[in-house]
Design a protein around this nucleic acid. Sequence first.
DNA 1: TGAATTTGACCTTG
DNA 2: CAAGGTCAAATTCA
Length: 277
Amino acid sequence: MENSGENFNAVKKRLVEELIKGRESAFQLQTLLHKLAQDSGQEQLAMKILTSLTEGLSMVTLGTASSAQIASVDCAGSGAAAGGDGGERKKKKTGVKDRRGCYKRKRTSDSWTEISPTTDDGRVWRKYGQKVILNCEYPRLYYRCTHKNQGCKATKQVQKIKEEPLLYQTTYFSHHTCTATPTELAQELILESDPADSNLLSFGPNNHLYSSPNPVKISSSEEDKHMVCFPHSISSDPWPGIVEPESIESKQAWSPRILVSYDDIEEAVSGCIRVHR
DNA sequence: TGAATTTGACCTTG
DNA sequence: CAAGGTCAAATTCA
């Protein structure tokens, strides 16, 4: 057998390189977009970014993680406390209800992920669970729409990624079928009226990736609804490229994020895995 | 007192 | 069997 530690380091190094390339390309694109309103080169450059990031992802994927786990950003690496289900409490119910909902959610076209310094999205959620996740420093929180009784099936999972600066990864499943808040209605109107807002790349000061404090649904197309954000650079710090919220004066002005659909990643990754194995 | 949260148990999937 | 997602009784809060 081979030295797996060395392999890992080599892969990691390449991953860093690939992601840095992606970042540089993104920066070029940003400059380009600044100069030109419309240009055919934009698409190619965006593709280049996607390829670089996907390449990096595929290398990470070689190890253990699924792309969904990669999207969860390494969860700060430390060994998690076992199980979340500790302690002693009543032994309960022997008569289990016929079936408990669907377990192990699969990412469908109706799910998407957002990274944000806040979990507040203008909706009213009810927490229904919390779980310690392996290799994640912070527990994952499970929420469902408060209006579940109206038949609203919207749920979300909130995973704290980082303490300083505070960052959460929120994964949404299904859309609200209950009455939307005025804020959200306004947001959806804006996005739907401007399809160019979907899948776009944009950056904050210092060329850093950032997300809106009040995240909105980015994609309006059915295939691209489940999204993942990527940091611009990789180091021991899971989110080194993200600026402190306090240092930003108008986060709102650059709220869109780098977004890549799971479908794209998984398609590309599945191809890359064969190459790298 | 009702609604929301907490948390151990239960269940499915890989 | 481990891990992740959900349920629901117990507890806390307004």
